[in-house]
Nucleic acid binder design. Structure first.
Lengths: 354, 354
DNA sequence: TATATTTGTGGGAACGATGCCATAGGTTCC
DNA sequence: GGAACCTATGGCATCGTTCCCACAAATATA
């Protein structure tokens, strides 16, 4: 052990309010009032107590406080994969909004595993968080939290429709718009790369896709709706198989940014020229989509805004637990870039109506 | 209020261990032992208590537990900007490792603001986290935490050299390697786009750059070391000014992924062909760098591994608070892609030695 | 002057869980 | 048969904070 001057060596134990009170020559009650600002304290006493607290390096013990108050100033945020920029932006938006409102954020990344999700929910309950913002992967976590009387906001996708509030984008409408855009360019064989049908996102995006096909008078070819897994590698495989087939599609609509990356890589590796030989459009705009040549046409969701809105909604729910549940639908923007163009003529079977 | 069957309506208040004990017909002490597994309990009693806990939906109150035990099972993670994928991966790696070790993660994104950083540190102290993993932006937060006896691991960059453990990459060596690579391709006018000199990352990368210039016998032109701000827009501006000048460099080394994006966008907007007219290399590999054409030569840091290593180091520090401080240096990989090629002949002043 | 009301302070009981200690019945061993 | 030990259980103080309450002094109102 090295020696140092006394004022630089922190005390072995952290100061408690009792020690602050003694240093200031008042009772614990008075010290508490002086520090929190609740109740009557003489101004001079308040100053003395605060000075004593500063001298001792006192920081309130949030555990003890919330144990007594039976409430915490922290919320839980549960996302599937922080490495996916969509979730990262969502978490950033939620976390910043929570900080702004004086709350701290417990963040858990459930790695897309349902068990981890339930474990995360239990951790949130143990920590008695004031509420949870989650991108659910099953109904289990949400219903567990709701049973424990913890408000939950589902973001991006819904599993507990009506049982809790939600913040989503207009998946169906946006998917319809993007598919219509491809149809208007003359594409008749438009493939949909999709992750998961259990999720409302996947389901609604597929519905929007089908809506637009129907509206354009294009008959639905089941083989063009391709389950493409969860990661870039799997999506690339799926896209490669699709693009290597004899009657390959002239356009691909990838239902999220990961699948779009897989599709892009597959097309690049196969040497398919975009948009001459293949048009590509995506749900979820990602930075790379505006950096590659040509840029990728995409529906841009403001993930950070979704996170902010979710936290906002959560606080409204906390303020009024009895209010009816709400679903906030944010709009998304279609960004048309160079990756979508008129369908190659040779591959057409029919000419588009419009 | 709607009515429902009794077992579906959660009790108004959460069950405590006292209620579990009463339901199981034992004392609180015995219930505690049955649930935690510490101390003697008859097997039959343990089963009965656990059943009672499950029936009542009992979840331990982590606040009360840690108040009594004077320790928490959570760590703090402080990053500058979750929307930057480097930090997002770092946070993901740290958070997952913490989860694996049975800890929860308090995540704060300080938005690159020094005040927010100190506020975050205070929040961590209030929550009595077991330790903190931080990408510091000043020495303030770290020293505050250390004074409060909370172990800190600095990641990516150092502000409190020697006072705490750190996990970094070999910035100087990697910057030297990337600059040498450019010099070996014949470049003599190699610009460095850099963010901040106060940071060890910036300083070391610049030193590595200068090392390599010196080794290649290239005289240092101060005008080629360009402070390029913090975000893509600022970096784009800086790069545009640089590239629009008469004696523009033939190669740019961008000291991080954000600056690289700015440089890329500037070059694209100016219509400069990469690598024919300009070579571009970056510190921090990012997904887009392998998707654009040509791919961008970059030093790849495994940010998730850094997060994991930081949490690992933190736990070792917690286990042995008296041990000497360590700095873990992880290696980085130079990924050579198409964006770096021989310098355009017309612009050369000298031919390279090697 | 008597009575409210406001201001200021301290005592002490919670909040929920844990873990030390005392107690006691059961084994084992010499 | 008693010392030593293991198993099993409950009582109770404790962690740090808040906040209700009682009390008192100062001030306002009747």
């Amino acid at each position: 052990m090295r020696h140092g001057s006394a004022d630089l060596v922190p005390p072995a134990r952290r100061a408690t309010i009792k020690e602050v009170a003694e240093a200031a020559g008042v009772s614990r009650s008075t010290a508490s009032r002086a520090l929190t600002g609740n109740g009557y304290v003489a101004e001079s006493v308040k100053q003395r107590v605060r000075q004593a607290a500063a001298d001792l390096g006192y920081v309130v013990d949030a555990m003890a406080r919330s144990l007594k108050q039976q409430s915490t100033k922290s919320i839980g945020v549960l996302v599937s994969d922080l490495r996916n920029e969509f979730y990262a932006h969502l978490a950033a938006g939620a976390s910043r909004q929570a900080t702004r409102l004086g709350y701290t954020t417990m963040l858990i990344d459930d790695q897309g595993e349902a068990e981890d999700e339930v474990a995360a929910a239990e951790a949130f309950v143990a920590l008695r968080v004031a509420g949870v913002v989650a991108t659910p992967i099953s109904a289990a976590a949400t219903s567990f939290l709701l049973r424990q009387r913890i408000p939950v906001i589902e973001v991006d996708r819904r599993f507990s429709d009506g049982a809790c509030d939600a913040v989503v984008v207009d998946n169906r409408g946006s998917a319809r718009a993007i598919t219509r855009h491809l149809a208007e360019l003359g594409h008749r064989r438009i493939a949909l790369l999709i992750d998961e049908d259990d999720w409302t996102t996947g389901r609604e995006r597929r519905e929007g896709y089908l809506d637009a096909l129907g509206a354009a008078g294009i008959s639905h070819d089941r083989g063009l709706v391709v389950p493409a897994g969860w990661d870039v590698e799997a999506a690339k495989e799926a896209a490669r198989d699709l693009l290597a087939s004899a009657d390959r599609p002239t356009a691909i609509f990838a239902a999220n940014n990961v699948l779009a990356e897989g599709a892009w890589r597959a097309a690049t590796e196969l040497g398919l020229r975009i948009p001459d030989e293949l048009s590509l459009a995506a749900f979820d705009d990602a930075p790379w989509m505006s950096m590659v040549t040509p840029g990728v046409t995409a529906v841009a969701q403001d993930a950070a805004a979704m996170g902010r809105a979710a936290v906002q909604t959560l606080f409204e729910r906390i303020a009024d637990p009895a209010a009816g549940t709400r679903t906030i639908v944010l709009s998304a923007t279609l960004r048309i870039r160079g990756s979508t163009a008129a369908a190659p003529v040779g591959q057409e079977r029919d000419l588009p109506v419009g």
